[in-house]
């Protein structure tokens, strides 16, 4: 069995992408930092129970998401957002080159959580569809259909910015 890397190396490897995921969920720098810290606090307490190093990344993202959902539920932040079927559109080259992170985060923030989560994990580029499905606890087919709709909606929002 492969050796579990030391705590510092795990922090180093994952904290930046965890922060990006947390920022996309919470839309707030302080909340995102707290979520990442809370996630690693849990890992520091329970991580020694994980025997398979290759599952650490998914465990961290799953834990962060669970912590976010618990916090948001307590704060009653969930709103039932209507979901329509936006047609996919292509952004012009000019529009693509002028995109900035603030407009992307703002557009992401206006998407329902069920779209925001898979889209952010997808754009972090280090998760396969299978891993995204595991983190979100949904079938892989659901991830793919949500991603397809989420991309179309995000593009429509970015066109309007």
């Amino acid at each position: 069995m492969a050796e579990v890397p030391p705590f510092e190396r795990i922090v180093e490897a994952h904290y930046e992408n965890l922060y990006r995921f947390a920022f996309s969920l919470s839309q707030n720098q302080n909340d995102a930092s707290d979520l990442v810290q809370q996630t690693f606090s849990i890992y520091a307490r329970k991580g020694h129970q994980l025997r398979e190093p290759e599952k650490i990344k998914s465990w961290l993202f799953t834990t962060l998401r669970r912590e976010y959902l618990a916090t948001a539920r307590r704060a009653n932040r969930f709103v039932d957002e209507p979901v329509d079927d936006t047609k996919a559109s292509e952004l012009t080259e000019d529009r693509i080159s002028n995109l900035d992170i603030d407009s992307v985060l703002a557009a992401l923030g206006s998407l329902p959580l069920e779209y925001r989560e898979p889209l952010t994990l997808y754009y972090l580029k280090e998760h396969s569809y299978r891993e995204i499905a595991d983190i979100l606890d949904v079938p892989i087919g659901t991830v793919m259909s949500r991603l397809s709709r989420a991309k179309a909606k995000l593009r429509a929002l970015l066109e309007d910015v």
Binding site: Y15, Y19, S33, V36, R45, H48
Partner: peptide
Amino acid sequence: GLEPPADLRRRLMALTPE
């Protein structure tokens, strides 16, 4: 390019794993 706050890494490294 979305960078975490400068002190986050330090806060995380200060945690002590069991």
